[in-house]
Design a protein around this nucleic acid. Structure first.
Ligand SMILES: [Mn+2]
Ligand SMILES: [Mn+2]
Ligand SMILES: [Mn+2]
Ligand SMILES: [Mn+2]
Lengths: 218, 218
DNA sequence: ACAAATATTTAGATTTGTCTAAATATTATT
DNA sequence: AATAATATTTAGACAAATCTAAATATTTGT
């Protein structure tokens, strides 16, 4: 597959939410930041190659073969993102653009060894699951910290309240997007929590807990 | 620069031995495994872009700007090769093809951090020098082990005698291409050597020493 | 059910990088 | 110096990926 074909395959995969759902030409065009006419040309080609099912005016979906390719691309993209954060000190929001390029490097040994080098990570820095070599992975869901049972660990992926005071609080307490958080204990009396974040355990009020989103593996 | 333009720039650089030497259309075509007519088209474009000097029928050379680009590509290529060998357990002869792809990834932060992650290596797994961010590097030369002064360290890059018995000897003594060898001591009486290779010191006869090529930094 | 709005495809053009075959320039040989 | 051999460029074609403008199909609203 060419770089461009690969990016279209990923776009169809993501728009279809990982299922073999049919997606519209315009949706793909928007995702790819291109024109609908370009999409029509490309999906015809993908269809010819056995990667996608395409019926004029009826949208496009991935074949099983196409889905395999998509999963392998997602795997590569997310492993590279882990590498950039864990080994090269990239921050949460800098990795995507570079991973978008690295995912197209062709070498099976490269990606297998990278996986090993990183200790076979299960999720990327955004908390999204990394498919195995066979394309298997666990689903993840986004929940507020106060809604998950004690003992759960997840990745901090967002805030409900994005006011400056709250963001300042997070900064002062060294809580950042992309951090892994373990919900250590819950105080029934006031709904406050003890959480473990980067080796240290801190105490947060219920109000904080109801404004932090975690991505957890089911 | 596009991927293709970058590969042409590197080809002109290497054929010109790192100087701004003029190289012929056919030489570039052979190096790039393409046709001379394609080279003519491309060098015209590189000339328009201020990367190369081109006079019809007279060959092509890099401008100072072109040389800067070439050095940055060589830097990226060689850093990735070190990464593949040091971190991902690739062997000496597997790295080039993958580095040929990785060198085109666009991210200044990526390459700076990779350099740091690898401990600012001076040479790649083939013993070739890695240009600094500013494009500076030390020249290296290839010499037989018995010709270098005691105390010199270099990378094993080849053999003079490639007969099966010799190669078997190297294998048995765990001497492989790409290994760093320190010439520890020389016995004047019989011309034999003590060499340090991967933590352990071994003794080799003069006959072995006269058949091993080292690449050393001047 | 029909018109209007929206979505999608087709036609034709452009850029990049490549190729083959033919033309032209340079270099080597006698 | 003329001819032969070699090197290089030009002309014209093609595939990939994109675009704009026009044509056509589908969906929506009354
Ligand atoms: Mn990403
Ligand atoms: Mn991509
Ligand atoms: Mn190489
Ligand atoms: Mn390359």
């Amino acid at each position: 597959m060419t770089l461009s074909e690969e990016d279209y395959i990923k776009a169809i995969y993501h728009l279809g939410k990982g299922e073999n759902t049919t997606v519209s030409t315009n949706a793909v065009a928007e995702q790819m930041e291109t024109k609908p006419s370009s999409v029509t040309d490309m999906v015809k080609k993908l269809s010819d190659k056995g990667v996608a099912n395409y019926k004029p005016y009826k949208g496009v979906s991935l074949t099983e073969y196409g889905k395999k390719i998509a999963l392998s691309l997602v795997r590569k993209h997310r492993l590279w993102e882990v590498f950039l954060v864990e080994k090269l000190n990239f921050s949460w929001d800098e990795v995507h653009e570079v991973a978008e390029q690295l995912e197209h490097i062709k070498s099976e040994k490269l990606i297998d060894q990278l996986d090993k080098h990183l200790g076979f990570p299960q999720v990327d820095p955004h908390g999204d699951p990394i498919p195995s070599k066979k394309g298997e992975f666990k689903k993840t869901i986004k929940k507020l910290l106060n809604e998950v049972p004690v003992g759960t660990s997840g990745i901090c992926v967002g805030v409900k309240d994005s006011s400056p005071p709250f963001l300042k609080f997070l900064d002062k307490n060294k809580i950042a997007l992309g951090d892994t958080i373990l919900v250590h204990d819950k105080e029934e009396f006031d709904g406050s929590f003890d959480i473990k974040i980067k080796e240290s355990t801190i105490h947060i009020s219920n109000q904080i807990a109801t404004n932090l989103y975690l991505k957890i593996t089911e």
